[in-house]
């Protein structure tokens, strides 16, 4: 799979292609389990079977899983700063757009004009992160799911949510209920408890890189993840909001310190087309 002769730009193009056209194995397995839980002729089963068929077709053809190829967020090890520059990534994004691996998905917010190459100031999003893993990670997150992301400030009287883990639980279930099928359920919640308004959304999004089958190292959060997953799936919202047993595929919760005055609970909702990818440079 890895060819040492490929340039960094080619490697990034390959990462975009694989991320846009295939699903991570843990997500695919979770969708398969969800389908088997539903009755043969049920609406939920039809939706999930269509999703699984879609993944097969897209992977086989090498075409995007979803037409909303989303916001592209790259996380690059700072050790790769020179090899994988923002310009390198931008070139790969423009080429991927030409090839139809990405939709012309970037709009100038002031003029309303479409940016045909998907490359301009602020797009794609590139973060250099302080690690020595020589890795580039990519999250492609569609707008429908991003619109369902939300931030709560505790206490929240309407939810009966105070500044404790029970309050967090209430926020998360409220977010899932509000999202119904709009964010393309069954989805995945990336959550941050604490932080400030900006750092919390960044951390919530980073949680979405965790595998569905991993275990949270913080026992309180591990317990809350399992409970919210179970309870969210009892709401009956189901795939695409047409009813069913699986509303969420996973809940991933991280925490950041906060100041005494603030207690934010931040939710990044990700659709079933959970397109995350990663490559490692030697």
């Amino acid at each position: 799979m890895k060819s040492p002769r490929q340039s960094p730009e080619e490697r990034i193009l390959g990462l975009i292609e694989r991320t846009s056209t295939t699903l991570p194995d843990d997500v695919l397995a979770a969708l398969g389990r969800a389908a088997r839980r539903e009755g043969r002729a049920s609406r939920a089963r039809v939706v999930l079977d269509t999703i699984l068929e879609n993944v097969r077709i897209a992977s086989a053809q090498g075409t995007p899983l979803c037409q909303d190829t989303g916001t592209l967020s790259f996380y690059v090890s700072s050790s790769l700063r020179r090899k994988v520059s923002p310009q390198t990534i931008a070139k790969a994004v423009a080429r991927a757009t030409e090839r139809g691996l990405l939709r012309q998905n970037t709009i100038d917010s002031v003029t309303g004009r479409s940016v045909a190459s998907n490359v301009c100031h602020g797009a794609p999003v590139v973060h250099y992160v302080d690690d020595w893993e020589n890795a580039v990670s990519l999250l492609m997150k569609g707008g429908g799911s991003e619109n369902m992301s939300v931030q709560f400030s505790l206490p929240d009287a309407a939810l009966g949510a105070g500044r404790d883990m029970e309050g967090v639980r209430r926020c998360l279930l409220a977010a899932v209920h509000k999202a119904q099928g709009f964010g393309c359920a069954p989805g995945i919640l990336g959550v941050c408890v604490g932080g400030d308004r900006a750092s919390a959304f960044a951390e919530a999004k980073r949680q979405l890189f965790r595998r569905l089958d991993d275990e949270n190292a913080v026992p309180e959060l591990a317990k809350l993840e399992k409970r919210v997953l179970r309870e969210a799936n009892s709401l009956g919202i189901g795939p695409m909001g047409l009813g069913g047993k699986t509303t969420l595929l996973g809940v991933k919760i991280g925490a950041l310190p906060r100041v005494p005055a603030s207690f934010f609970v931040t939710v990044a909702y990700l659709c079933w087309a959970a397109r995350r990818g990663r490559i490692v440079f030697r």
């Binding site: 939706v47 269509t50 999703i51 068929e53 879609n54 077709i57 897209a58 053809q61 075409t63 995007p64 899983l65 979803c66 037409q67 909303d68 569609g142 429908g144 099928g181 393309c184 695409m240 047409l242 659709c271 079933w272 087309a273």
Partner: peptide, 13 residues
């Protein structure tokens, strides 16, 4: 009519 969200390859077919 509801089509399946995200099922872009199925729709394109």
């Amino acid at each position: 009519l509801q089509a399946v969200g995200g099922a872009a390859a199925v729709a394109a077919k």
